Structures are given as C-alpha cells and as structure tokens.
Computed example of a mutant assay.
Amino acid sequence: MPPKILILTVSHGASHERAAAALGKALLEARPDLMVEAWNGLERSARWFRLYYDSYQIPLRYWPRLWGWIEGVQHRSRSSGPGWLYRRGAEPLFGDIETFGADVVIATEVGMCELAAMLKREMAARFRLVAVVTGVDADRAWAQPEVDLYVTAPGDPAAELEAAGVPRAKVLPCGQPVDPAFASLPDKPTVRARLGIRPDLRMVLVLFGGAGWGKPRRIVDALNQVKRPLQAVFVTGCNRRLQEEVQSLCRDDGRCRVLGWVDNMHEWMAAADLLVSKPGASALIEALDCGLPLLAIDPLPGNERRACEWIEKQRVGYWIKDPQSLGPSIARLLENPAGLDRLRERAQALARPRAAYDAAEAILELLGSNR
C-alpha cells in the first residue's frame, strides 16, 4: 500500500490552500507513488462548527477595530479557541482522518494544526504531524508538543516558535511553500511576449487577494495620476462582481487589462515591475520569490497590518497608509529605477522559491522514519 499523506487546510484567504497545493505538487514530483489528499477540514466538521469558525467575518466586516483586538488576543494565546468546542465540532473530521489512515498529516492553518494535535494527544493517533506556518509571523497556538516538524519562513516566525517553546530541531526555516513554478521563473522578455505585455513600458500588477477584496476606484484613480506611460494588469480573484466593476472603471483605458482568477501568478509577477496589493501571505511571499517590489494597501486588522510593518522593516516595499499617496508613490517608484532595483534586491535576498521542494524533502524523511 502506498504511503498516505493528508493535508488539512481551510479556505480563509488564499494562503492556506495555496501552500497546501504547492506542497502536494512538490511531494508528488518527488514520490509519484504517494497517496496525497488535501481536505478542507471545515467541510468535514459539524455544520455548527463551520459557522462558528467563519464567524470572524462578522466583526471583520462591521467592527474591524474589534476584530483587530480579537485577532491580537488570539495571536498571543496558547489556543485559537476553546478545546471542548473544537473537540465536539471536529468529531466527524476526526473519524474521517482515522478512516483515511494517514502516515503524515500536514496542517497549513493554525486551527487545523490544533485539531490534528488534539487527535494525536487524546486518541493516540500514530501519524506524524507537520505544521506549515504561512505569513511572516507565527501565532502562539502553533506551538503544540505533538507537532513533529514545523515548516516556516526564516527570521521572525521561526524565532517566535522557539520563544513559544518549540525545540529548534523541529523548526525548518526553509520559507513558506509556494507553487514549484516559482523556482524556475521565465525571464521578463520571454514571459511578457507570452502574456502580450509590451516590453517598452513599466507594468503595475494589482491584486485583490483570492477572495477579491478591495476598493478598485481608488486604485484606478491613483493610476490616472501617474503621468509616465505605463500598463496595468488587475487580478480580481474569485469575485466576479469585482471583476465587472474594474472592467467598467477601465472600459476606455487601453493601458489596463482585467483578469479574474489566474493559475499562472508566477508569470504575471515575473512580468511586472511593481505590485499593488493587500498584504496577504501568498501575495507577499510570492512577490518576494519573484523579486517584485510591493506597495501594500488596505490591510485587514491583525496579521495583515503586522505584515505591512514587516514589509517596511525589511525594505521590500512600502505601506500606503494614506490612500491619497498611492498615485504619487507609484509615480515616484516608476520614475526611479535605482529605487526599484534596491527594493528588488532586498526581496531577492529574502526569496525562498524552492521552499516547497525543501519542505517535501524533510516530510519524506519524516515519513521514512515512521514506517
């Protein structure tokens, strides 16, 4: 029977699912005989538990400051929620995991990590547990004694795990797993020709996250303030209504192209000179892996604002705190090649485009020790 690897994720934002997909692809490239499955853990849990887990969207939408406080408390807490509630809500998921009989379970979201650790601790499950920490910091609740291996970005997340009591030997600071395609990027002239992007103009890539959040009129107005000729590509994710809104705003502007969901983000980033985006974990890490400078806009309270602080500390881009400064900031960077190059060099120094392969190698070593 082939070895079984189960990846637990959730659909909150794009980073958890993208990390899961990247790891699954890298594992199967290394060992085609593996049985690898990725599950949305909430879809296999009790319905009331899914509603509870998704309830963060209410304060996030209506009382963002309240959500910022709640998220800050969760960031520092030993658990992201009550253990008794997690135990009851995840009973169906626990049954499915036991039936699947995984040799290794990989969690790409902190709550899924807590649930898998609970299953090992309370029901004597024998699988190896791998925690994949996304983003540029680590919630305290990732630190579970039952975890055998942590995959994380170097620097702050690794240090935070160690400060929370995780033994250094368990931490692999290889970077956040991204699609293996980021490890072999095409050169800019080649990819621009393939995508139909003019080679003689600067290109601004605008992202709204996988779910498609943002205020497109503000961004279009900012681009209209830039006197230098440019071209812009908008990627609106899964939000069809947002895509139609941006298309309407750009209807008479030949500089702009509007896309929905794309599966070749590595190519669009490789073609771009500057990224304007919410600072979600996937957008930030993938931009680093492409050496793409970032202007971070509209961060959500909590981890995205901490990501903005990290962006400025590491000098890989800027946090646009005043919406009125977006247009002048774009213009200033596009007119300053040396400044763009400095940001690009800093991003390249932090890039870990082979993280999925490095993580897969470590997971396969763990798998070998468990059989």
Rank of each mutant, 00 (worst) to 15 (best):
R217M: 15
R218Y: 10
I219E: 11
I219Q: 11
I219K: 10
D221R: 15
D221Q: 15
D221N: 15
D221K: 12
D221H: 09
A222S: 15
A222Y: 09
Q225T: 07
Q225D: 12
Q225E: 14
Q225M: 10
V226Q: 10
V226D: 08
K227F: 00
K227I: 02
K227G: 12
R228L: 10
P229L: 04
P229E: 05
P229K: 04
P229G: 02
L230R: 04
L230T: 03
L230I: 02
L230Q: 03
L230E: 05
L230W: 05
Q231W: 01
A232V: 09
A232C: 11
A232M: 01
A232D: 07
V233P: 00
V233N: 00
F234D: 02
F234Q: 04
F234M: 07
F234L: 03
F234W: 11
V235M: 11
V235T: 01
V235H: 04
T236D: 10
T236L: 03
T236M: 07
T236S: 12
G237K: 10
G237C: 04
C238I: 00
C238V: 00
C238T: 05
N239H: 05
N239V: 07
R240F: 01
R240K: 10
R241I: 00
R241A: 15
L242Q: 10
L242N: 07
Q243R: 13
Q243G: 12
E244Y: 06
E244F: 05
E244S: 02
E245T: 03
V246I: 06
V246D: 06
V246A: 05
V246F: 03
Q247N: 04
Q247H: 06
S248A: 14
S248P: 01
S248M: 13
L249K: 09
C250M: 03
C250V: 11
R251K: 14
R251H: 12
R251L: 13
R251T: 08
D252Y: 13
D252P: 07
D252Q: 12
D253S: 11
G254I: 02
G254Q: 14
G254M: 10
G254T: 11
C256M: 13
C256Q: 11
R257G: 09
R257T: 15
R257A: 14
L259E: 14
L259P: 09
L259V: 03
L259M: 13
L259D: 08
G260H: 08
G260P: 09
G260N: 00
W261V: 10
W261N: 03
D263W: 13
D263K: 15
N264K: 08
M265C: 15
M265Y: 00
